[in-house]
Design a protein around this nucleic acid. Structure first.
Lengths: 194, 194
DNA sequence: TATTGAGTGAACAGCGCTGTTTAACGCTGC
DNA sequence: GCAGCGTTAAACAGCGCTGTTCACTCAATA
């Protein structure tokens, strides 16, 4: 019972990869089981065998995909005392992540609003984002309204749409985008009312 | 033939307003004729009577909505010689527009990717955006890579997603967002490599 | 007053998708 | 060499939506 299970696993992988391809092309919300089966060159019933519930397919896809595109590890960021350098490091890492994950991530972020199951599956991403934010808004010499602005700009810099807006289309490299936003934050922190 | 035509016009308006409500709630791509009819308290057939083609309904909705939420007029911007002040004026106006139009505009911008008919209907918006951009990227004292960055930042500032990211959720007022971005552009133009 | 037009209500076939059933096939592994 | 598993293939009822048809009501209009 080796060859057999391996073949079945291979089918599972084919289905997952087919689903991911279609998720990226049309978005998960517009991807039907029928289309996944066809793309994987498998009978529709076979898909149901491997993933009785669509949620299970979603889980498997997320699991597979997030292993290929791992979120940047956070623990190193804490060691950086200077908030500007820490932000720069964080944004650099995040934008590299967006560069590799952006194709699908864009679809996921859009479709999660109308797919409760997807929203649940993406909770790890939300938790990572919240963690990253916590670490990057700390330590800035800004108070009151000035701090509010700094935080708003950092939140903005962390957003996928921000990266996509600046880098997609080729206007900026990820590194430049990170540098620009980092500087904007530092400027506001230093002198909010320029 | 007065009362009669008036009543029919009223029905047309009810249908348009129903469609707009649903467009804003679920997005045009997920809005069915059946749902529009139900929301407007009208038979499905009646909707088909007034709008034989879905494109016609889309046109009518756009026309009605863009009269309620007119795009800011551009001609005044040219009179402002100082590019920073011109950008500030432009962003202020644009963000006020986003504030009033954002509810539906967000849905339209998302769904246009999978609705060719919607993309066509929104061409006036695209033309306005291109015009606005032209007027706002002129006159900055920046060349080479520096100019590229300035333009990228202005493009970014003009995006709906940028406004939404900064202002939605209450972190910033539209005016502050405009001020912050304007300053960021000016700083980059003055000294790109700080 | 007779007519016309807008709207109702119900029905139809058609589409694509879902989730499930049944039968049959071929290869793997004991 | 046979049993069992994964898979194929085809079919089914069900759902919601589309676009169209028909018969009907009712009120405004000429």
């Amino acid at each position: 019972m080796r060859t057999r299970a391996a073949a079945a696993d291979q089918t599972t992988q084919r289905i997952i990869e087919a689903a991911l391809s279609l998720y990226e092309a049309r978005g998960p919300a517009d991807t039907t089981i029928s289309a996944v089966a066809e793309y994987a060159r498998v009978q529709r019933l076979t898909v149901y065998r491997h993933f009785p519930d669509e949620r299970l397919l979603l889980d498997a896809c997320w699991e597979h995909w997030s292993r290929v595109h791992p979120l940047p590890p956070l623990h190193r960021w804490e060691e950086i005392a200077d908030p500007r350098q820490r932000l720069r490091t964080g944004l650099d890492a995040l934008y590299i992540y967006y560069e590799s994950a952006g194709g699908l991530l864009e679809r996921l972020l859009i479709d999660r609003a109308r797919m409760p199951a997807l929203a649940e599956v993406m909770q790890p991403f939300d938790r990572w984002s919240a963690d990253a934010r916590e670490r990057l808004i700390e330590g800035w010499e800004a108070h009151g309204r000035s701090r509010q602005w700094v935080v708003a700009l950092i939140d903005h810099a962390l957003r996928f749409t921000t990266w996509a807006s600046l880098v997609r289309g080729g206007a900026l490299h990820s590194g430049d985008a990170s540098r620009l936003l980092c500087r904007a934050v530092a400027d506001i922190a230093r002198d909010p009312y320029a």
